[in-house]
Structure formats: structure tokens, C-alpha cells
Design a protein around this nucleic acid. Structure first.
Lengths: 333, 333
DNA sequence: TCTGCGAATGTAATCGTTTGCAACACTCTT
DNA sequence: AAGAGTGTTGCAAACGATTACATTCGCAGA
């Protein structure tokens, strides 16, 4: 004999008051007498009543959800960011929805910008079309969409590149190469530009032969290693700055397999400081991004936006840090 | 001059039909004439109408969302599972909500089992209380909650342990140790039991001194290494089976730092086959779990459950596989 | 005694869909 | 010509909350 889920009117009947009073007692307690409050509370307990969020959301014209658009859910890089986001959203009473922008077909993707699905968006993919996202409150995190006007939470990728390059130059390296991310990616572009700039400041250049095109993934790091291996040992880079730790892992793994040692034969600087790379051999020198903070701050910004506050002026830039480990070594030609 | 979002009645007025007809034309096209269908479609386009999901969900008494309860969102292990889940849910028209069970306070957590928040649950955390989840359609994936009656998608952890142990015994190892996960964790328990069993089949035992208590994390692998290092080299294990790859990384990293070599000084078998460990030095021999499949199948099972199908009989067991790499070597005492 | 006021509560409209039922227009039998 | 059957549409009642507005009541002040 299961009876349906109790509604507010069941509570009201039992408490001997109107539904309006129950509603007020629950969501705006100061509007009712302490006595009624107690009566209602008792009735709630007796009926096992639980608020129906869908109904409330309909009435309030909101959804209670925030959608994170992630380029690739399977990529561990995003898990910490999501964790940061979840940590803020949960306590604030919002649901965290996630969607993978790479594996969704464009039509579905368009439906995400749909205000009846989520109250706001956290966009982690810089390759989405600006116009399809124009209508919804959103913030961009990590990556950003050129031409899209929205609060951005990011790091200074150029400054980060400079940290890496300065470190390598300081160790005596003169032939320094760069392994990029996907060609169109805003991060790849910024990091490559930063590399160029930083090298120029030291009177060095980045020849095309020292630019290896990757895609942030392990395989492409491996591929970069292969390209490097067949270059002339006397002119190829003695140090590489890679746009992701994953690629650095792939690269180092391949070099090892070919009998070469890092940092003896090649110094390597990664990017991201993902957890594992502190424990591999050799522990990787890298640029640390505060991933959880990125998520946290993006979520906080979005909440402010949703609560009607004006969008902040400039971008929110988080500090990066060079983490020195054992994958770089002095070099003398 | 922004006008409010168009509703179904706006479309109806423009098309010269009733809201009922519009609704049917959109969600049940075969019920209306091709002609009306066209008229409605034109009106939809003209008004820019988009269905309000909250209203539909209220009417249908559903939420359109599925909630994944993840023990630790920051742990990359779960990202592939989530990816598998997302790949199924998206096309099926469900939103994927995620929540971190570790960082949520118990009260919030209880609210998750709330049917007005999600239509169903995918539980990835075996440490939750069975009674709080009794009411909602759910499936358990990877981990499971003892005493909770629900479809389970998992691997055979004992058989997996046996694969690892058989491999090590085959290489000549006789003193084989195990690094566990968190003590209470169902996976830890199963893997430890499997290790015991498999060793017994070979006439070997697992003394307490060869059991190292970890928590799946990198640090605890490091800690296990330290414990192993101070044991008598003549009696301590010559091979270790670890309940996670992360711990194996932590362990190997620490051994390297102390000047020991894997697999020369110690053979190591991990668990999970997370992506990176194929590229570290040495590439790790491990048990592969089909993580994306776990997520995919869990999501599919839940969808079946939600569509009213009866729950399947037994658990859904996915195959594991021993992936041979270079972290294990023959041993002769 | 009467008026005015504020606090607590009730009434009923509303949020935007879906859908059971009824109405209607046909066609086809008999 | 009446009745049955079929296919299309409209009416209006849900779904379950919130809230503007109305009402009631008690009490202070004139």
C-alpha cells in the first residue's frame, strides 16, 4: 500500500493551516509565528514531506543547476577543476551538471545553452562558437572564447611560459624547443607566443625545427620525442618546454625506451603539475596551475553573476608557479 | 525592449491552434496532420520558442537528470567512468549531475537521494549508508554497498587479484606482498581476499608483515615503500601487488629516490591501468579495468531501470586483463 | 466606542507544459 | 439514413510549489 509522495497540501491539512503558511514556514520562517512553525514542522515530519524542487524551480523560473562544459571528461586534468566547482556549487544549493563538448553532437551542444536546462554555464572549452552562448550567464575558465564577452578565470599563460624559459636559460640552455597543444587552442597559442617572447628577451629564437606540434595528449608527446630523436644532436634543442605534463610523460617515456636519459640528454619542463608527475622518474619540473582554485573561483564568479551582481571588470588571473624537480639540468655546449 | 521568453501559448496563437496541438506537434508529431505540423514549425521558428524543460518535468513528475555520486571528484580514476556515463546519458536526453560524496556534508548528501533532484543515481561510493538510498532507482558501479539491493556493474576483484598473483608466482616469486586500499573499502577487502586465495592455491601465504595498508593514494604508496625498505631484505617480499596504480607510482618513485630499481629489486603489479602509467619508467604491469565501459554499462542499466524494466538478476561483471609491461621480472631466491 | 495599523494567515492566480476527455468531421457499413 | 469507427483538434485539469492581494484579528490611541 504505497501512497504517493506527500505534497505541501498534505502537510497543510495535517497541520490545519493553508499551503501558503506551510510554504512560508519552510522557506521564510520569520513570516510565521513560532507556534505555527512548530506545528508545521511536526506535520512535515509526520508526513515525511520533501519539497519538490521542480515545482519550486518552475515557479521561480530557474533550474537550480549550473552546467560545466568540458572539452574532454576523460581527461584527468579537468577532474580537479570540477572538484573545485562542485565544492562551491553544492553548498550554494546548485546542482552541478557536466557535459562533454567533444563527444556531444553539435545539435545537443546547442541545446546546452538553453536557459531551461541550467541557470548558468561554466565554459572550459575555448573552441565553442561565441554566438551560440550569447544569451546565458556564463563564465569562462582556463580556456576562453575569443570574442565572447564574459568573466574569465585563467592564468597568465605567457608569464608561465616565461617562467619555464627563464629557468632553462638560467641553466645554460641556448637551444630551447617547445611542444605545443592543439594548433587552434587558445592556450597553445598563448603558450607558444609566451615562449617566443621569453626567448627573444634573452636574445634567443625559436626556429620552426624546434617547434613540435602536439595535442596535449600522451601520444603526441611520444611523437614529439620521435621527431626530436631523428634531428641532428648538435643542433636540436637541449631543452624542451611542453604545453602539458601528459605530453612530457609521453616524451620522457619514449626517450627512455630509446635509451636516453632525462635530464642528462634533454631537459624537460612540463605544464599543469598533475599529481602523478611528481612521482615518476625523473620527477618532472613543471608549471603549476591552481586547478582547484580555477574551478572554485569560476563557480564563485558565476554565482555572483546569477545573483544579479554586475560582471567584474577585467579577467581574473591566478598565479602560476614553477615547480622545480629533477627533469632539468645545467647545460654547457 | 526585451520581451519575455515565448511560451507555448504564443506559438499556439501565432499558428492559430491550441496549446495542446502545439505540444503534440512537438513531442508527438504523428498525432497531428502534416499540415498542422508545418504551421506549428513555422510559428516556432517565428517566435524563437524553446521548450521549458522544468515545466515539462513537473508535468511528468521527473527531473530529467541522473546523479553520479563520486567518492572523490579530484581523483582521475573517475574521470573515465564519468566520461562513459556522460556518453550514454547525453544522447538519451538526461542531464548528468555529479556530486562529491567526500566533500559534501552528510545532510546535503541525504538530500541527494531526493527524487526531486534526480530520477536515478549511479553510486560509485561503497561507503554510503544503504538505508538513505533505499527509495530511489539506482545502480552501483565499481564499488558497491553491502546490503543494498540494486543492479551492480563491477569487475571480479578476486579474479583480478588472482591474475596478478599467478603472474608473479609464474615469475618465480615466493614472497609476495600486498598493498591494500582503505581498510573499510569493499574493493580493498575483495582484492585482499583474492590475494590470500590466490596465494593459497600456490601453497603460499600472506604474512601480516607483507600486508601494507594504503588508501589508493600516491602518498600511501610512498609510505608502503618506506615500510618495505626497513624490512629485512632476506625475508621481505620480492614482489608486491598493489590495489591501485597511484600507489604503485608513489611506491616506485620512493624506491627510485632511495636508489633501488624496479623490477630488479622488487617486482610491482598495479591496478586500474590508468593512462599515464604506461609511460613512466618502468612502464607498469597492471590489471586493466574497463573504466569507460563500467560507466557506460552502469548508465545503460540505470536507463533501463528508469524505463520500467525489471532489474537484472545477478551482478554485471566486466572482464579484467593483466597488462604486461616492465615492472615485473623473474626472481630466483 | 470607533478607527487605524500591523502581524499572521488564507485565497487563488501563477509558473509552462502535458494529456484525459469530449467534440467534431469525416468515411464506411448496413 | 443512422450508426460505428477513425483521425484531428480543443478544453481544461492537472503537475506542486510560491506569492500578490485580501482578510482577519488583536490592540493601541483618540
Amino acid at each position: 500500500m504505497v501512497r504517493a509522495r506527500p505534497r505541501i497540501s498534505d502537510v497543510a491539512r495535517l497541520a490545519g493551516v493553508s499551503t501558503a503558511t506551510v510554504s512560508r514556514a519552510l522557506s521564510n520562517p520569520s513570516m510565521v509565528t513560532a507556534e505555527t512553525r512548530a506545528t508545521v514542522a511536526a506535520a512535515v515530519k509526520a508526513t515525511g514531506y520533501r519539497l519538490n524542487l521542480t515545482a519550486r524551480n518552475l515557479r521561480h523560473s530557474r533550474t537550480g543547476g549550473v552546467l560545466a562544459l568540458v572539452p574532454n571528461l576523460a581527461n584527468p586534468f579537468f577532474s580537479q577543476i570540477l572538484s573545485g566547482i562542485a565544492g562551491v556549487l553544492g553548498p550554494a544549493g546548485y546542482n552541478l551538471l557536466v557535459a562533454d563538448t567533444r563527444t556531444s553532437d553539435p545539435e545537443t551542444l546547442l541545446a546546452y545553452a538553453e536557459p531551461s536546462r541550467a541557470d548558468g554555464l561554466i565554459v572550459l572549452d575555448g573552441s565553442l562558437a561565441a554566438e551560440s552562448l550569447a544569451r546565458v550567464p556564463l563564465v569562462e575558465a582556463c580556456e576562453w572564447i575569443p570574442g565572447l564577452q564574459a568573466p574569465r578565470v585563467k592564468i597568465d599563460n605567457r608569464a608561465a611560459a616565461k617562467l619555464a624559459i627563464d629557468h632553462l636559460v638560467g641553466l645554460g640552455h641556448r637551444r630551447i624547443g617547445h611542444v605545443t597543444g592543439p594548433t587552434q587552442n587558445v592556450l597553445s597559442i598563448a603558450r607558444l607566443a609566451g615562449t617566443h617572447e621569453a626567448l627573444a628577451e634573452h636574445g634567443l629564437t625559436l626556429p620552426d625545427s624546434a617547434i613540435y606540434h602536439g595535442d596535449f595528449g600522451l601520444q603526441s608527446g611520444q611523437e614529439a620525442a620521435r621527431q626530436w630523436l631523428v634531428q641532428d644532436p648538435n643542433t636540436r634543442p637541449s631543452a624542451l618546454f611542453l604545453a602539458s605534463d601528459e605530453m612530457a610523460c609521453g616524451l620522457i617515456g619514449e626517450l627512455h625506451r630509446q635509451g636516453l636519459q632525462v635530464p642528462r640528454d634533454l631537459s624537460v619542463v612540463g605544464f599543469d603539475d598533475i599529481e602523478l608527475i611528481a612521482h615518476i622518474a625523473p620527477p618532472l619540473t613543471t608549471i603549476r596551475q591552481p586547478r582547484a582554485d580555477l574551478g572554485r573561483i569560476a563557480a564563485e564568479s558565476l554565482l555572483r553573476l546569477l545573483s544579479g551582481e554586475a560582471a567584474p571588470e577585467g579577467d581574473h588571473i591566478l598565479p602560476v608557479e614553477l615547480v622545480l624537480r629533477d627533469s632539468t639540468a645545467p647545460w654547457a655546449d
